[in-house]
Computed example of a mutant assay.
Amino acid sequence: MAVIDKDEQQEHIIEGRKTFFICPDATLLPENYLEEYMARGYETYIIGDDRYCPLKAKVEVIIETFTDSILFFYIDMPVPGISWEKYIKELQEKYTGRILIGVLYAKRQSEEDKKKLEKYYLFDVGIQCGCISLEYQKAKNFALIDKVMYANQACGRRKNIRAICDTKSRVSFVTKHGQIKGSILDISLSHFSAIFDKTLDVQLYEKIPKVLINVNGLHFISDAILVMQRMKNGVMLNVFVFSNSMGQQGVESDIQPRLLERIYQMTSDKAKSLMRFKFDEARKNLRQYMNDDDLYDAGYYNFDGD
C-alpha cells in the first residue's frame, strides 16, 4: 500500500519556503551555489528568461504555486518588455504580505548611484529582502546572499531539506531477531522515514548499528536511532535520525557531500518538473487569449511568435 500518493507528493514539493533568483548573471551567481545553499537548509532555484514562456507569466506561476517564497530580481539583466523599477513596484503592491522581494545588482562605481537605487527599492517601493550589491569576485557573493537569506529565514521551519524517495530506495539492518528490510519514503541529511515488510521489533531511541541505505542508487552505511513511530494510511511509519561516529546527529562527513548531491538532485528535479508543467499551462493560456502584439504591450513578450 502506498503511504505517499501523488497529491501528497505534490504537496511536499510545494511546501516550505523557497527562494527564486530571477534572471541572475551566471558569472556573479553560478548555479553550483544552489546545492551549497541546500546544505545550509535553503531550497533555491534560478528562473531565467527564455523564448518558451514569458518571464512575467513564470513569476505569476511561482507566486501562485509556491505561496511561501522569496524572489530576488537581478535588475541589471535586460528583459524585453520589462522595466524592473516599474515591474517590482507593481509586484510589491499586488502581493504585499504574500511574498518577500529582494533586489540584486552589479556593484556600482558611484556611491550616489547606489544610494539612489537603495532609496527607491527599500523606501519608495518597500521591498523587505534588501538590495544586494554583488561583487565581481563571485566567491564573495555566496556569503552576501547567504547573510540576507538567513536574516529572512529562507530555510523556513526545517533545518534540513528532505527529499521524497522513489520505490527503489531501500533500508536494511540486522537485529537479534534477524534481518529487517523496508522502503525509504523520504530522507534528509539528518533523518529518514521508512516502512518495513514486517513488524519492527526495535525500541524507541534504540541505536541500530550499520544500517544499509540505498537512496535512489546511492549506497552507504550509517548508525541510526528510531525516534518516532506513527500510523499513516494504515501503515506504521518509522522515523530515524542518523548518528555518526562522533555521536552527533547526521551521517559521516565523507558521506554527507554525496547524500547532499542526491537530495539536491531529487528535490530540484521534482520541483523543476512541476514548474515546467505549470509554465506550459501558463503559456498555452496566454497564447489562447492574447496575440503576440498584445503580449508585447503587456510586458509578456520574450519570444518571436513561434
Rank of each mutant, 00 (worst) to 15 (best):
K6Q: 10
I13K: 07
E15T: 07
A26S: 05
P30W: 01
Y33H: 02
I46Q: 09
I47N: 01
D49E: 15
L55Y: 10
V61P: 05
E64F: 08
I75T: 11
I101H: 01
G102P: 03
K119D: 15
L122W: 04
L122K: 02
C129P: 04
C129V: 03
Y136S: 08
Q137R: 01
F142R: 00
A143L: 09
A143N: 07
Y150L: 07
Y150K: 11
R157E: 08
K159R: 05
K159Y: 02
N160I: 00
D166L: 02
K168S: 11
R170Q: 13
F173G: 09
F196Q: 09
D201C: 13
V202C: 10
L204D: 09
L212C: 07
I221Q: 12
I221H: 09
Q229V: 04
R230L: 13
G234R: 04
M236T: 15
F240H: 14
M246S: 14
G247E: 07
E252K: 14
S253H: 13
Q256G: 03
Q256C: 12
Q256W: 02
P257D: 06
L259N: 04
Q265I: 02
S268G: 00
A271E: 01
F279C: 03
A282V: 03
N285M: 08
Q288K: 08
Y289V: 10
N291E: 02
D292Q: 11
D294G: 09
D304S: 12
